[in-house]
Simulated assay, not measured.
Amino acid sequence: MRARTLLPATLAAALLTLTACGSGEGSTSGSGAGAAPTSEASSPAQPAASNGSGAEGAQVPKVLNFSATTVDGKPFDAKMLAGKPTVLWFWAPWCPTCKGQAAETAKVAADNAGKVNVVGVAGLDKNAAMRDFVADTGTGSFPHVSDENGEVWKRFEVTQQSHYVILDKTGKTVYEGVLPGGKGLADKVAGLTG
């Protein structure tokens, strides 16, 4: 009888751990770990010969060989991110930590326009809630991918919202983790542009 009452509690605790707003500090990764594509093998930092070129003729690393739809219904081709440092901000519309990161993420995007790509990757909810989040937080100045099925999250092995993945211009992961309130994001981006 006791096992029947413990099992639901254990499952609930595991789900909360996977979906709770991120609170851990990030990690720096020099090997591209955490950015490996799910089914397209090899190192994400290595360009894929058949991927063509991205923005300004840059070679496209495999990690950026995907397409999606933005929260406002426009097509999004990640190949166009190639050749510039990229900040991927994984968020959920109901997450208070994500809302706390919105202003700093938007400021970093505005301050580095043309030098750094900033892309929101919304998940863990429906697209209508994602659109409302973008409107409510004033983050509409940069694209937000609607990732209702979690495909982009899986590609970058993200398991919690309010998570940043920062890629250098070659597509190599140089940082991944939570930055409470977005604090430190500007410094990490400046290290890639300066």
Rank of each mutant, 00 (worst) to 15 (best):
L64D: 00
A49F: 11
T28K: 15
A68T: 08
G32N: 05
G32S: 08
G73W: 05
P44F: 01
A48V: 15
G30H: 14
V63R: 05
S43P: 10
A35P: 04
Q46I: 11
A78I: 01
T69V: 09
Q46N: 09
G57W: 02
K79G: 03
T28A: 15
S42W: 14
K74Y: 06
S39R: 10
P75M: 07
V63M: 11
A45K: 11
G30A: 15
T70A: 08
Q59W: 03
V63E: 03
E25Y: 13
K79W: 00
Q46A: 15
A78N: 04
T38I: 13
S39Q: 08
G54S: 02
P44H: 05
S31R: 04
V71T: 12
S67I: 02
T69Y: 00
A41R: 15
A41M: 08
D72V: 09
S39N: 07
G52N: 01
S39E: 00
A78D: 00
A58P: 02
P37Q: 11
A58L: 09
A68Y: 05
N51S: 11
K79H: 03
G32C: 07
S39D: 02
G32Q: 10
G34I: 01
V60E: 00
A35N: 10
G52P: 04
S50R: 15
A55L: 13
A33M: 10
P37F: 10
A49L: 09
A48S: 10
V60L: 05
N65S: 12
S53P: 00
G32W: 06
L64W: 04
F66D: 02
P37W: 04
T38N: 06
S50P: 06
F66I: 03
S31Y: 01
K74E: 14
G32I: 07
D77M: 09
E25Q: 13
S29H: 15
T38E: 11
S53L: 00
P47F: 08
A68S: 08
S29W: 11
P75F: 02
A58R: 01
S43Q: 14
A49V: 12
G73H: 11
G73T: 04
V60C: 06
G54E: 00
S42T: 10
G30Q: 14
A78C: 03
A55M: 04
A68H: 07
E40M: 12
V63G: 12
N51R: 12
S31F: 00
S53H: 01
A35T: 02
G57E: 03
T70V: 07
F66V: 02
D72G: 09
A45R: 13
K74N: 08
S43Y: 11
K62Y: 02
Q46Y: 08
G52R: 07
G30F: 10
E25H: 14
S50E: 12
P47M: 10
